[in-house]
Amino acid sequence: MTKKHFDSASYLAFMAPCIGIEIKEEWKDEIIGHLDNAAKMANIVENADIDKDSLDLANTYSPD
């Protein structure tokens, strides 16, 4: 599995003003933790051994 480095603190510092949100100092550690977890999940998905020629669609919910 290839692990890519993701700098959550730098991403947060860059993106918050780009999307116009204020991040309070007391929130930053928790947000960075969530971004770190999201990066770990993305790394797992990106490195999943999936046949590039397969297309397995997920089931969809249809109420009766």
Rank of each mutant, 00 (worst) to 15 (best):
G33V: 00
H34T: 07
I23W: 00
Y11T: 09
L35T: 02
G33I: 01
Y61C: 04
S8C: 02
L55V: 11
D51V: 00
I21R: 05
A16E: 04
E22W: 10
T60W: 14
K24C: 00
S54Y: 01
Y61M: 06
T60V: 12
A9Y: 08
I19T: 06
N47M: 07
E25P: 06
N43M: 05
H5F: 13
L12I: 03
I19V: 15
V45P: 04
A13T: 09
A48V: 06
A16C: 07
S54P: 01
A38R: 07
I23R: 02
D49F: 08
H34I: 10
A16I: 04
L35E: 02
S54I: 08
I21N: 04
H34W: 05
K52T: 08
M15Q: 10
S62R: 15
D49M: 08
S54D: 10
S10R: 15
S8T: 03
W27P: 01
E22N: 14
A58N: 13
K52Q: 09
D51F: 03
M1V: 09
C18N: 13
W27R: 12
I44L: 14
H5C: 09
Y61L: 09
A42H: 08
K24I: 00
A48M: 08
I44H: 09
L55W: 12
I50T: 09
I21E: 09
D7P: 01
T2K: 11
D7W: 03
A16Y: 02
N59R: 12
W27N: 13
W27C: 04
I23M: 03
E46N: 12
I19K: 06
K3V: 10
E46Y: 11
A38W: 11
E22P: 07
E22T: 15
K24R: 13
I23V: 15
K52W: 05
A39F: 03
V45L: 13
N59A: 12
D56N: 12
M15V: 12
E30A: 10
E46D: 14
D56C: 11
E22D: 07
N43Y: 04
A39C: 03
I44G: 04
P63C: 02
G20C: 01
F6A: 04
N47T: 13
E26W: 05
S8R: 00
A58H: 12
M41P: 04
A39S: 07
A48Q: 13
D29S: 06
K28S: 03
K24H: 09
V45R: 13
A13S: 09
L57P: 06
I44D: 11
D51E: 03
H34C: 11
E25Y: 01
N47S: 13
A38F: 10
A48P: 03
M41L: 15
A48K: 10
L12K: 00
S10L: 06
N59H: 11
F14V: 11
P63K: 07
K40F: 08
E46G: 14
K28Y: 01
M15Y: 07
D7G: 03
M41K: 15
Y11N: 06
D56V: 15
S54N: 04
F14Y: 12
P63Q: 05
L35Q: 03
D56L: 09
E26R: 04
D51W: 01
D36Y: 00
N47Y: 04
S8K: 00
N37Q: 15
D64L: 05
M15A: 08
K52R: 11
Y61E: 10
A42Y: 15
F14E: 15
K3Q: 14
M41E: 15
A42S: 13
Y61H: 06
